[in-house]
């Protein structure tokens, strides 16, 4: 894909996608077009939420931006550099806890530094600082399985922050948490985001979450995933989620999403009917 040599895109945007698509298992019988024709620009420090029915390729796009998978169409840039491999500048946080169970909390947080061969004191200092930011400094020497789900996700955020990323990629990070914890985690994330100045790309299928967090909501169509519309949200923060404005947004997003879910269902029914 990137055989044309030097990147010819000079925007300093945090993420730039041009004509990006992904076909899984390309060239085989099981080839499956998950994502196509994605054009997207994310400004530095912007909070962008990906909203779409499940299976529409949101995670796939996040993987492409992270550099964990190669795009089969188009190209991606981050701060002017072509995305070809994973980079510590772009940290990924997953839905299920992805902490290393054999390491303590602080060792998890400083894993990236230990990869670079940092000394123990340096690692502990950086870990303490990052854990301080997520309010879990006291849990430094605990093991992941001694923590609750919400705490584990905060540790995962601290681990990402310790790399001082410019882009935080979050794949339904709070989906496994209960409603109250999730609301708290959203506030917490907004604080972290403000402090770090990083761009956040956040995947969810919860409309409430999108309204609570996003500067812009990217709504996806289903199968293959395309960008259907981008809905800007310019409500001031902290947001009153019970305001008329928030309600209007929720209704708008629900309508957009319902079309897609309906379409996905119809497709599935057609598939099972022919099978």
């Amino acid at each position: 894909m990137s055989s044309e040599g030097a990147p010819h895109f000079s925007s300093r945007d945090a993420v730039v996608c041009r004509g990006v698509g992904k076909t899984w298992a390309a060239g085989t019988k099981r080839a499956h077009n998950a994502l196509t024709d994605i054009d997207l620009d994310v400004a530095p420090g912007e909070f962008v939420v990906f909203l779409g029915p499940s299976g529409c390729g949101k995670s796939t796009l996040l993987y492409l931006i992270a550099g964990l998978e190669d795009a089969t169409e188009g190209q991606l840039w981050s701060f002017g550099d072509l995305v070809e491999t994973p980079s510590p500048q772009r940290s990924l946080i997953f839905q299920e806890t992805s902490l290393f169970p054999w390491l303590t909390v602080w060792e998890n947080v400083s894993f990236g530094l230990s990869i670079r061969g940092a000394s123990k004191e340096e690692r502990r200092t950086v870990a303490a600082e990052a854990l301080q930011r997520v309010g879990l400094k006291a849990a430094m020497d605990k093991r992941p399985d001694e923590l609750s789900g919400g705490m584990r996700q905060r540790v995962a955020v601290a681990r990402a922050l310790a790399m001082r990323p410019k882009v935080l990629l979050m794949d339904e990070p709070f989906a496994a948490l209960d409603v109250q914890t999730r609301a708290r985690m959203q506030d917490f994330l907004l604080d972290v985001w403000r402090d770090s100045g990083a761009s956040v790309l956040f995947v969810t299928h919860h409309i409430d979450e999108a309204v609570a967090l996003a500067d812009r909501v990217v709504v996806f169509t289903s199968r293959p995933g395309r960008i259907k519309t981008i809905v800007p949200i310019d409500m001031p923060r902290p947001r009153n989620l019970f305001s008329r404005e928030a309600e209007t947004l929720r209704i708008q997003l629900t309508d957009l999403l319902r079309d897609e879910v309906d379409r996905a269902f119809a497709e599935q029914e057609a598939l099972t009917a022919t099978a």
């Binding site: 992270a66 550099g67 964990l68 994973p86 980079s87 510590p88 772009r90 940290s91 990924l92 997953f94 299920e96 992805s98 290393f100 894993f111 990236g112 990869i115 670079r116 681990r159 790399m163």
Partner: peptide
Amino acid sequence: VNTNLINVARTMGA
């Protein structure tokens, strides 16, 4: 082995 664990290490430059 859980792919997420491997991917975390990859994004950290391992």
